[in-house]
Amino acid sequence: MERFAGLLGQLPREQGQMLRALHLAQEELGWISRDAIRLIARHLRVSEAQVYGPATFYAEFRHSPPPQTLVTWCSGPSCRVVGGDRIRRIFEAEFGCRLGENTADDALGLWLGQCNGTCERAPMVWVNGRVVGPLTMVDTVRLARRLKDGEDPIDWPEQPIKIAPATFTGAEEVYGSAHAAELDGAAR
């Protein structure tokens, strides 16, 4: 919370910084707590209600702590026309929670995701942000059960590539390291 308060303090005190402030809270704290709303309201010099409004209007902002493992189910039509809705029913049955909820111990969560246009992998889900698909229904059951057993069924690379390193000859001269630090901040 202290770190969040510090970073929040660096944002200009403008209404236009609202989404940025809320994104910051979610990144730092994992979710938008009542305390975070109060801090943002004080910093932006608006009422708590004026923060609470946007915080609940936008689907991305969460109001309870995130689960350890998050399965995001793609609701898009490309998934749906090839059986996507069945995947939702399987996860709901296996996890014992409804879409949008966490399991009682917060170990697993099944949340709604909006299509990000990787439709060639339909039908799919994201497990902690990584696309898993195309899934058969049998795959789905197996995936859900491995997640329930606390397994990480996907051996992902350490850091998902956002800004990839360049390795061609002369990369140093072309990219330099001058704005690497700046980019590091910008990419977040």
Partner: peptide, 26 residues
């Protein structure tokens, strides 16, 4: 760059403007 936060209706131009202003994207 303004990062959205998951609202379809913000694709409508006046909703988009409200969202850029930091309000609910209505």
């Amino acid at each position: 760059i303004t990062r959205g936060a998951g609202s379809y209706v913000c694709g409508e131009e006046t909703g988009l403007i409200a969202s850029v202003e930091g309000l609910r994207g209505m």
